[in-house]
Amino acid sequence: MTHMELENLVSDYLEGQLDTVRRVEVEAHLNGCPECKELTATVREGIELCRSAEDLEPAPWLVSRIMRATVGERKATFWEQAASYIRPVLHPRVAYAVAMGVFSFSIIINVAGINLRHIKAQDLNPRTWFYQANRNGHLLYARAEKFCYDLKVVYELETRLRQLRQQSEPGKGEEPKQSPPAGAPAGGSTEGQQPSEPLLALVRNSKLEIGNSKLEARNSLPLRVGGPRSSSFDFRISTFDFPVSNSQTGSVSSVRSITQ
């Protein structure tokens, strides 16, 4: 068998359509001819490549394009039209913008103090919104400022009280023991305890009333705390001595606000 004869029979051989005699002749030639053997293998590879070729994915618009070319533009249904209007609104950016708008509007309404249930004609005026929002904003700021200064006063008072306690502690052990007055209510409950911390109480007219006992201020220390604007605070810190048991004395410091 020649090379040319084998080439003419290679397809039939690979498809198994040769009779036994021809198939034996082809195989005998292939066993003795490396070139034809390689060619046959390559033909087989080509056929397998064709048969294993995978499909391509057509363009997504192809069906729509053919539909337009055959039946024309299809009229959209009511729901499809509605969906086409809603679809842009459902875009995340638009939804976020709308949500932020609603949120901002609700904040303005809330800050302006407008009651939507009992809305009045003047409430619809944006100038009213601005005025109310401006007023409420300043009030809020003033409250915050006052709170900060109140905190400052409290810490200042605590500092001063700590100073007073430190001043009074060295002489406390040298003071004579006092017998409790009759009917002193505070001594019984603290019997046997050393009052290490001064008590803070509000007093009137420099007198502290505990039960039937009236204690005069041992010393009194004025304190003034001024704010940067119009607010200033005058305080008076007083320390009272009073018996807390048969053998011990205690002290209480009070803070009285004079002006505010």
């Binding site: 003419n8 397809s11 060619l39 080509g46 056929i47 490549l49």
Partner: peptide, 17 residues
């Protein structure tokens, strides 16, 4: 048809080679 297919396959094999 058979002839064209056979020659086509041979040509395809050579091209692939």
């Amino acid at each position: 048809v058979k002839s064209r297919i056979n020659r086509g396959r041979l040509e395809l094999a050579r091209v692939l080679k």
